[in-house]
Computed example of a mutant assay.
Amino acid sequence: MHRVAETLRDRIKTLRKKAKLTLDQLAPQAGLSKSYLWELENRDLPRPSGEKLAGLAKALNVTVDYLLGGDPTENLETAEDKAFFREYEAMSPEARAQLRRLAKALDK
Rank of each mutant, 00 (worst) to 15 (best):
D71S: 04
K20M: 05
A57V: 09
L8W: 07
L23Q: 06
L106S: 06
L67Q: 09
L15N: 00
P28T: 05
Y36D: 01
E74H: 08
M91G: 02
G31D: 10
G70D: 01
L32N: 13
L26Q: 11
L106H: 12
R3H: 06
N61I: 00
A105R: 13
L23V: 14
K13V: 07
E87N: 10
A79K: 10
T7V: 06
L99G: 00
T14H: 04
T14E: 11
D71C: 05
D10C: 06
N42C: 10
D107W: 00
L37W: 13
S33G: 14
N61V: 01
A5F: 03
A95M: 07
A95S: 08
Y66E: 13
D24T: 14
Q98I: 04
A5Q: 03
G69I: 02
L45W: 00
Q25V: 13
P46G: 12
W38V: 01
A19E: 14
K20D: 14
L76S: 00
S49W: 11
L53E: 08
T7R: 12
L53Y: 06
Q29A: 07
L53P: 08
K52N: 14
N61H: 11
L26N: 09
K34W: 01
Q98S: 03
E51R: 15
N75P: 05
A30Q: 07
A105E: 14
G70L: 11
P93Y: 09
L23F: 07
E41I: 13
A90W: 04
E87H: 07
E6T: 15
P48V: 11
E94Q: 12
T73V: 01
A54T: 09
S35C: 00
I12N: 09
Y88H: 03
A95H: 02
A95L: 03
Q29E: 15
N61L: 04
L15C: 02
E77N: 00
D24H: 11
A103C: 04
L56I: 02
K108E: 14
L76R: 03
R11P: 01
L68R: 09
A19G: 02
V64C: 12
N61M: 03
W38M: 11
F84D: 07
Q25G: 14
E94R: 00
L60W: 12
R96F: 01
E41N: 11
V4E: 10
Y66M: 10
R47D: 08
M1K: 10
Y36R: 08
E74V: 10
L102S: 02
H2F: 02
L60T: 03
T14V: 09
D107R: 04
E39V: 07
A83N: 00
A105S: 06
E77K: 08
R16Y: 12
L40Q: 10
G70F: 08
R11S: 11
E77S: 12
E77R: 10
T78Y: 04
W38R: 08
R16F: 14
R3L: 02
M1N: 03
L15Q: 13
M1H: 06
T14P: 02
L15P: 01
V64T: 15
V4W: 00
W38H: 14
E87F: 02
T78H: 07
G70Y: 08
N42V: 08
Y66D: 14
E77A: 15
K20F: 03
E39H: 15
G50P: 07
G31S: 06
L45N: 09
R86S: 06
R43M: 10
L26G: 08
I12T: 08
L53H: 01
R86N: 07
A27N: 08
A54M: 12
A5N: 04
K18F: 02
E94Y: 04
L23C: 04
R100G: 03
